[in-house]
Design a protein around this nucleic acid. Structure first.
Length: 421
RNA sequence: GCGGCUGUAGCUCAGUUGGUUAGAGUACUGGAUUGUGAUUCCAGGUGUCGUGGGUUCGAGUCCCAUCAGCCGCCCCA
């Protein structure tokens, strides 16, 4: 690299995770695993690269994701592959490929991993972003929707997000939707001139999204528009009514949003999302719903499914805003003083590690003052000082950084003491 | 993809109508205090002024391009 500099900069939209933010990621992931496993969900990990066709057939050709946001390329074997823009399609593909749905047993799965979309950068929107999601296959009942939503709700509460509320809607089925779409198109045609250019595009590609338009004149023109709920088939309607009843009984707060639609084409019946005001315009932190036809559509058996995905980057942002530092327990710092103690400290630390205690060992051989400064900066709460005096007495001097208090602990009790901190 | 804003020390920022040696706070390093941090005092280096080109006797400052980030839209997690 003579005469030139290495560009020390990550690729646009890609970022490094470390420090306080990564601690939130870790805490959220740990909490998710614990919550989901408790419900009987098991982890699945699918590849980042999938065949293009997987997303074309699941997410939908007309979606922005497939039309312009995918990292796709032709590999050396001539395969047109995509870095997954979401994880549901890959999970379904895996379930079908491994014939895991040739059973009447429900299959409950969750995933945690990076996803990729080529989008314009903005706060909370990255080109590599992380999602946590859960999918349940094989159960068509509203009880299944409710179980999944309760798990999600309890997970978010465990993270301390108690004020969030779900927006809920039913988008019906392919049988019920044409009637609604026809009515909606007719409604649109009557006042066509009042709608913006984007809406004219939407009415062709994905009519439901016209309901989402934020242009004030469009919202005005939408007054008295046909509601999806007026066109629902009986099964969808009963399903939706029962789900709402269950959620009320279970104390899961939700508001009905008859205009709620989702960007992915595969949803049927239940659709929901949660927004947060804490992250600017990038306000959707999670979304999901029922997708009873996707499995069959991807070549599998006719198996109903329900699932959702959370944006981990945005969730971490919300947690940081609401709660500041992620909960974490830094280890104690063991500082040896003098040659004799330096040798003994290593053995002592080893026995503490073996006993399951958390101890960081000061190995620089620096002055106590210097080591204390480091401890203070690192947020270490407990410092263990081991010098000649302590060695002779079979103790270690323990300093509690918050109070400045010191005491002598017998070496024999050290591990148990540390674990109760 | 569309519209707008910003880029100066590790961090937060100042820097006059272009003017010669680029500043403050904080953080950092050492000392006051050789076994005690966060407080106090003293001393010390903070830097391709995002990058490249242009205008000019002279550019952190003006112009163009480019890169990165931010805000709104679009979309979504």
């Amino acid at each position: 690299m003579l005469g030139s500099r290495i560009m020390a900069q990550s690729v646009k939209g890609m970022r490094d995770l470390f420090g306080a933010e990564l601690r939130w990621f870790q805490h959220i992931e740990d909490t998710a695993r614990k919550c989901f496993e408790r419900h009987g969900y098991r982890e699945i990990r699918t590849p980042i690269l999938e065949e293009l066709e997987v997303f074309k057939r699941s997410v939908g050709d007309s979606s922005d994701i497939v039309k312009k946001e995918m990292y796709d390329f032709v590999d050396k074997g001539g395969r047109h592959v995509v870095m997954r823009p979401e994880n549901t399609a890959g999970v379904v593909r895996a379930m079908v490929e491994h014939k895991l749905l040739q059973t009447s047993d429900p299959q409950l799965l969750y995933y945690i991993g990076p996803q990729f979309r080529y989008e314009r950068m903005q706060a909370g929107r990255y080109r590599q972003f992380w999602q946590i999601g859960a999918e349940s296959f094989g159960v068509a009942s509203p009880e299944s929707d409710a179980e999944s939503l309760v798990m999600l709700y309890d997970f978010l509460r465990e993270l301390g997000l108690e004020k969030l509320s779900f927006s809920l809607n039913s988008v019906g089925t392919p049988e019920s939707r044409p009637a609604f779409q026809a009515a909606f198109r007719a409604f649109f045609a009557e006042r066509e001139a009042q709608f913006c250019g984007d809406c004219h595009r939407r009415i062709e590609e994905n009519p439901l999204r016209v309901l989402d338009c934020k242009v004030p004149t469009c919202q005005k023109a939408l007054a008295g528009h046909p509601l999806i709920s007026e066109f629902l088939d009986e099964a969808s309607e009963k399903h939706h009514a029962r789900l709402k009843e269950l959620l009320r009984d279970l104390g899961v707060p939700f508001t009905e949003d008859p205009r709620l639609v989702r960007g992915l084409d595969y949803y049927t019946k239940t659709a929901f999302e949660v927004l947060s005001g804490d992250i600017g315009a990038q306000s959707a932190i999670l979304g999901g719903g029922r997708y009873d036809l996707l499995v069959k559509h991807l070549g599998g058996p006719d198996v109903p499914a329900f699932g959702w995905a959370i944006g981990l980057d945005r969730l971490a942002m919300v947690c940081q805003t609401l709660r500041g530092e992620a909960p974490h327990r830094p280890p104690a710092l063991l500082i040896p003083l003098g040659d004799r103690a330096t040798g003994e400290a290593m053995k002592l630390a080893r026995s503490l590690w073996a006993a399951g205690a958390s101890v960081q060992l000061e190995t620089r051989g620096v002055a106590l003052k210097k080591a204390m400064t480091t401890a203070n900066r690192t947020g270490i709460q407990t410092v263990l000082i081991l010098g000649d005096g302590e060695l002779d007495g079979g103790t270690v001097t323990v300093k509690h950084m918050a109070t400045g208090e010191q005491e002598a602990w017998p070496l024999a009790d050290l591990a148990t003491h540390l674990k109760t901190l």
